[in-house]
Design a protein around this nucleic acid. Structure first.
Ligand code: ZN
Ligand code: ZN
Ligand code: ZN
Ligand code: ZN
Lengths: 146, 146
DNA sequence: CTTGAAGCTATAGTTGCTAGAGACATTAGC
DNA sequence: GCTAATGTCTCTAGCAACTATAGCTTCAAG
């Protein structure tokens, strides 16, 4: 049996994050010790490691919630899980495309600046005028982190 | 003079976002009409377009705040602005590297799954065990959107 | 047996907006 | 001139996915 701190250390997840996951129902309520401290077993560690890994791969908590409930039914077909993964792949590919364009623009900006006064700075100039950009990098819609 | 709606349409920024930018001090308080409605001139439009463009390029509002205050002093040297742009470029490059690794892992996952039961699903399996991954894609630290 | 680390709850803050409620202003049609 | 439809006003609350703080209690080492 692991305390929350050991569990977090094993899974690479901070203690408040574990409590947060429990609060939003991603982890089941942990059993408690006599002194009211959470205690975890091997299954909880596996589940938390799954969450951590999926987060590392950029899945949202909502997607992870679905993946977890799928993995709780091992006899079901896996098409739904695969669809979630493919959607995540598509999302990553979209971000990749956008970041590639951003990188190109940022490189252009910093390379073109010859380093004088702000009034002549190419960085400031380009930021003020998208028509100076070489690509259409504008923000289409929603994203999030990884 | 533009109302907030026209300004937003011109700059490609939603009305509540403009009010939010004013609230956090990124835009100066706008003048008001007799009926207490905000009115904007050409300078406000330029400033808002600058913000929008910088957001599109992934700069944080904090970075944009600094860039704006730099651009308000046109006689100063531009090294600080260039440093902000280079930091943003570095950030984009870090995200790009990470997303590239994620893409590889996700592709591996979906390709390896032969589509049977959840119990045999490669997607679920890999999510549960990072040692099945081909790269070290783990989340080092902070990120945010672009 | 004492002390310091680790745990507990509950609340609030982060970033960059977005959505809603309910009241006032402006504009278009008749 | 009047009314209805937008547009704008303020204020508050909510989103993701945590992180931080405060003020407790419990546990483990010396
Ligand atoms: Zn410069
Ligand atoms: Zn541009
Ligand atoms: Zn599968
Ligand atoms: Zn992995």
């Amino acid at each position: 049996m692991l305390t929350i701190g050991k569990l977090g250390a094993q899974a690479g997840v901070k203690v408040p994050t574990i409590r947060y996951y429990e609060q939003i129902g991603l982890l089941p309520e942990a059993g408690r010790s006599a002194g009211n401290q959470r205690l975890y077993g091997r299954k909880a560690l596996e589940r938390l490691a799954f969450i951590r890994h999926a987060r590392d791969l950029g899945f949202t908590l909502e997607a992870i919630r679905d993946l977890l409930s799928l993995s709780d039914n091992p006899e079901q077909p896996c098409v739904a899980a695969d669809a979630i993964a493919r959607a995540q792949l598509a999302e990553v590919e979209r971000r990749l495309a956008r970041l590639t364009a951003l990188k190109a623009e940022l490189e252009r900006m910093v390379v073109q600046c010859v380093g004088g006064k702000i009034a002549d700075c190419r960085v400031i100039e380009v930021l003020g005028d998208h028509s100076l950009c070489s690509t259409d990098h504008r923000h289409p819609e929603s994203e999030s982190s990884p």
